[in-house]
Simulated scan of single mutants.
Amino acid sequence: MSFRQFDDRLDEVTRGLHQMAHDTEELVRRAVALVGQPTVDPAPIRDADDEIDRAEVEVEESTVEILALHHPVARDLRVLVTVLKINNDLERIGDHAVNIAEAAARLAQAEKKVPIPPELDDMSRMAREMLRDALDAFAHRNADDARSVIARDDRLDQLQDSLFRVMITHMPDYNLSGCLQVILIGRNLERIGDLATNIGEDVVYMVQGITIRHQEGGPAPASGGEAGGEPTAS
């Protein structure tokens, strides 16, 4: 495979990932919009997730083929490794969107209407913003924006804890199953935030060649999206 062919294939696979990212963002938005509705049909969300699953396989197969044929190094290798990781995270986010839609359907069937606390709305907004911003950071190869996503994860965890406590207090007065569905929706939103954080960490690795996963707060950010100690090999 020539360098021109490699560049063309790399562009193709990243375009595929960008489309998958767009579709996943839209799926999460649609799933969240079902929460609190009087009637909910999760089937369209499941069908859309099946499409994301198929896209995930296509992106993975194309990326592995490029790795096998060209043996890239340094930044090119990091880009492809990051594509594989984000590809898997997007597929998992699609699964969480399905979980949210199915929980929303069960919530709609509860005998007694369960109040939706403001923490759930805040979690929905924050998780979706984190996902959007992490994917934008990947598209623009901006490590500083990726770190901004990572910094928000603790706040999302705090909202999840608060949501759990609120719903526990509601259980004696409202439908137990309905309260559990709200907690489950919050848990899936929290997991979407975790996966957005993973994407942010992978973007930092792709751009700056450093691994900040499992590091408390990560190393101090370098100035500029692509600045900071660019290594010459992976």
Rank of each mutant, 00 (worst) to 15 (best):
V182Y: 06
V182R: 07
N198F: 08
G193N: 07
I183C: 12
M171Y: 09
D194R: 03
V182H: 03
D194K: 01
N198A: 15
N175S: 11
N198D: 13
L189P: 03
M171H: 12
E190H: 04
N175V: 01
D194M: 05
G178C: 11
S177L: 13
G186Q: 10
E190Q: 09
N198L: 10
R191A: 02
I192R: 04
I199L: 01
T169A: 13
I185K: 08
Y174A: 06
N175L: 02
T169G: 09
H170Y: 15
I185C: 13
L189K: 00
G186M: 11
P172A: 07
P172Q: 11
P172Y: 10
N175G: 14
T169M: 10
A196Y: 01
I192Q: 05
I192P: 05
L189F: 07
I192C: 04
T197G: 14
I183G: 05
D194P: 05
L195F: 09
A196T: 06
L195T: 02
D173H: 15
N198V: 11
N175D: 14
I185T: 09
I185N: 05
S177F: 05
D194F: 00
M171K: 08
Q181L: 08
I185Y: 08
Y174P: 01
I199V: 15
T197L: 10
G193T: 05
L176H: 13
G186D: 14
N198S: 14
Q181N: 12
A196K: 00
C179D: 04
N175Q: 06
Y174K: 10
T197E: 12
C179K: 07
E190C: 03
R191D: 06
V182C: 10
A196Q: 00
I185G: 05
S177Q: 09
G193H: 04
R191I: 02
I183D: 05
N175F: 04
L184M: 12
S177M: 14
L180G: 03
L184D: 06
D173K: 15
I185Q: 04
P172C: 07
R191C: 00
G193C: 06
L195M: 15
I192F: 06
C179W: 03
G186L: 09
N188R: 08
R191K: 15
N188T: 06
I185S: 03
C179T: 00
T197N: 15
P172S: 08
A196E: 02
D173S: 12
E190F: 00
N198W: 09
P172T: 08
R191V: 04
L189M: 11
L195Y: 09
